[in-house]
Write a protein that binds this DNA or RNA. Structure first.
Length: 592
RNA sequence: GCGCCCGUAGCUCAAUUGGAUAGAGCGUUAGCCUCCGGAGCUAAAGGUUACAGGUUCGAUUCCUGUCGGGCGCACCA
């Protein structure tokens, strides 16, 4: 991996010149400049070290460049540029051999073992099992699943998990709503509870219940539990089916009820008490002028149990056990994260919806109170999605149960297209999802651009094969040894001259760094961005360079480059969970 | 009132964690099919990065303030 070679080389240069050691190396930033005139890789290390070295940045850069160990297999030059950047340029050998290396590594190309197997748990979606998955869940599912794949690709032991809130008021309310709809179905009078769920799926669940048992449950003392349990399992199964069809994999569906049953909730409270982190008190006074109505409600309240989250950066202490003895949502959630750590995960990444961002300081504070490492939990907020149709926002009312579901979206624009659109944008930014554009199966739809390039390459390879031409390849290829010569292909066997060929090769060479950066920054949107650029680079190459021609050696070199591009596009799409088609049918709409 | 996300081309968004001349797509305009997939390519036009300060070799990025948009501020989950 080039990134590693540069890091090692600069470490050596720092040592030789006496400009720094491990401390300085930690500040090292390597990047692929957007302007290729600035080389294939660049670092600003000398600019960062100039002050402490008490030498001008350019002088530091000169010294580092001179001390950088020669590596003609990879680099042709190390230049000092601008105020003191160090720019590295690939050697012809490296570039000529790269396509063969990409094809030899196949689906492994782009990955690395950089993380050395660090355990990471990614919790995502975790929607309440009280209704169909909505559009924000669809976005979170695309992002979370891709994040897991990115982490795996960079050497993490990563797993996806869905936290099922199957305990508490919300599922009780679902049970009561279903019970009411069931009663109405069998001709009995029963009003929907206040704030009950109104979506049509509630009726569907009620309609599927066996009549005799249902009637018995309606009359039984605590019979709503019967409705609750059945509604819960049905909702859960439906969510699991939707996410599976959508391509979002979860290693485990972790139920909140397990935490209550196993005693993990109680023991977590005991641990917090043992650390002197909880106390019993009445709710603190809130400015009465803002909340006059609270005066009456507060009368007669018993003491609740508070957690000292205020000590750890939260605005105030939070209630973990209500005055009626029931835990708040926070306590089992703390127990859940404690369990994540106990299961051996070194790091937990949670993807939460936009309405939960206020909950982040509370949760982090709670885990600090528990004694977990400060950086154990990392929360990413998946911002909201605005659906647009005919250029107008699609109105969605959760109260009336009217909203576009994940299933609607898959049926409407397809899972591939939906995922591509969600992953195109930065997770932390609001997203306008243009349904009209996503529905369109023509050149205006960016989701097809990358897939088209992949299908086009497959077509060219098929065309060449019919003429008996195959991509250039070395007879014996060393597997998995890494390094530029690992393919064993001799440079003379591939012949590249055109600027479009080298531009494409350079773009392919950047893929591992894009994957590494996307994983490290938790920014999946870099992948589709890179793939669009790569597809564009391929199309440029394709227009400028005839691939299949009478020149057999050149044809085979170019077929190899096309094949390498196919591998990279395929790997990138696989990271996104988007299919890489060998063929694409022209739709009637596209032809018109 | 407090907190979080955000404000970049007509529209939707990037900008490699502070880097070199702020880039794509759509839309607009002008071109390119005897030939490997035209769902493609080439080019033009389009910017005081909301505004005002600050930090430094360097700011779209970090800090402060103002304006504007969205979302949160429960003994709900």
């Amino acid at each position: 991996m080039v990134w590693k070679a540069l890091t090692d080389g600069l470490a050596e240069a720092l040592k030789v010149t006496g400009l720094g050691g491990e401390e300085e190396l930690r500040r090292l930033e390597l990047a692929i400049p957007r302007d290729s005139a600035h080389g294939d890789w660049t670092t600003n290390l000398s600019l960062l070290l100039a002050k402490q070295a008490k030498r001008p940045p350019r002088a530091v850069a000169e010294a580092l460049a001179a001390a950088f160990p020669p590596d003609p297999e990879r680099f042709a030059s190390v230049e000092v540029a601008g105020p003191g950047f160090l720019n590295f340029r690939y050697s012809q050998t490296f570039l000529s051999e790269l396509p063969a290396r990409v094809v030899a590594e196949g689906e492994r190309f782009g990955g690395s073992d950089q993380a050395h197997g660090t355990n990471v748990l990614v919790e995502y979606v975790s929607a309440n099992p009280t209704g169909p998955l909505n559009i924000v869940s669809a976005r979170a599912a695309a992002v979370g699943a891709t994040l897991v794949r990115l982490l795996k690709a960079t050497g993490h032991e990563a797993a996806g998990e869905f936290y099922v809130n199957d305990a508490g008021n919300q599922v009780d309310l679902l049970g009561e709503s279903v019970a009411a709809r069931f009663a109405q179905r069998v001709g009995l009078e029963r009003a929907l509870p206040e704030n009950g769920y109104q979506g049509s799926y509630v009726q569907e669940i009620a309609a599927a219940l066996p009549e005799r048992e249902g009637r018995a449950a309606l009359d039984a003392p605590g019979g709503t539990a019967w409705f609750r349990d059945r509604a819960l399992e049905r909702m859960l199964a439906s969510q699991q089916r939707d996410l599976s069809d959508y391509g979002a994999e979860f290693a485990r569906w972790y139920r909140e009820s397990e935490l209550h049953r196993s005693g993990a909730v109680d023991s977590t409270l005991e641990v917090l008490a043992g650390r002197d982190m909880v106390y019993r008190a009445l709710r603190p006074e809130i400015a009465s002028k803002d909340r006059p109505a609270d005066e009456e409600e507060r009368e007669g309240l018993e003491e609740a149990t508070f957690l000292r989250t205020g000590r750890f950066g939260d605005d105030q202490d939070r209630v973990v056990v209500k005055s009626n003895g029931a835990p708040t949502y926070l306590l089992p959630d703390i127990a859940y994260h404690r369990d994540k750590r106990a299961r051996g995960f070194r790091h937990a990444i949670d993807l939460w919806g936009p309405d939960h961002h206020g909950y982040v300081p509370r949760m982090k504070a709670a885990l600090l109170a528990l004694g977990l490492e400060p950086d154990f939990l990392e929360v990413l907020i998946v911002q909201q999605v605005n659906l647009l149709a005919n250029g107008q926002p699609v109105k969605m009312s959760k109260r009336a149960g009217e909203f576009v579901t994940l299933r609607d979206l898959m049926d409407d624009v397809g899972a591939d297209c939906a995922k591509f659109f969600f992953l195109m944008r930065s997770t932390s930014a609001h997203l306008d999802f243009d349904l009209d554009l996503a529905r369109r199966q023509n050149d205006e739809n960016p989701a097809y651009y990358v897939q088209y390039a992949h299908a086009r390459i497959a077509s060219v390879l098929r065309f060449a094969a019919e003429k008996g031409l195959t991509p250039a390849r070395a007879p014996a290829m060393a597997q998995g040894t890494g390094g530029p010569s690992a393919t064993g292909i001799a440079p003379a066997e591939t012949k590249y001259e055109a600027s479009e060929e080298f531009a494409l090769i350079r773009k392919l060479a950047a893929f591992p760094e894009v994957v590494r950066g996307a994983a490290a920054a938790r920014e999946p949107h870099r992948i589709p961005g890179y793939l669009v650029e790569t597809a564009a680079e391929f199309h440029r190459f394709y227009h400028a360079c005839r691939v299949v021609s009478d020149d057999v050696a050149r044809s085979r070199s170019r077929l190899l480059l096309a094949d390498a591009t196919r591998v990279v596009l395929g790997n990138g799409l696989a990271l996104m969970g988007v299919s890489a088609p060998e063929r694409m049918e022209r739709s009637a709409e596209a032809i018109a």
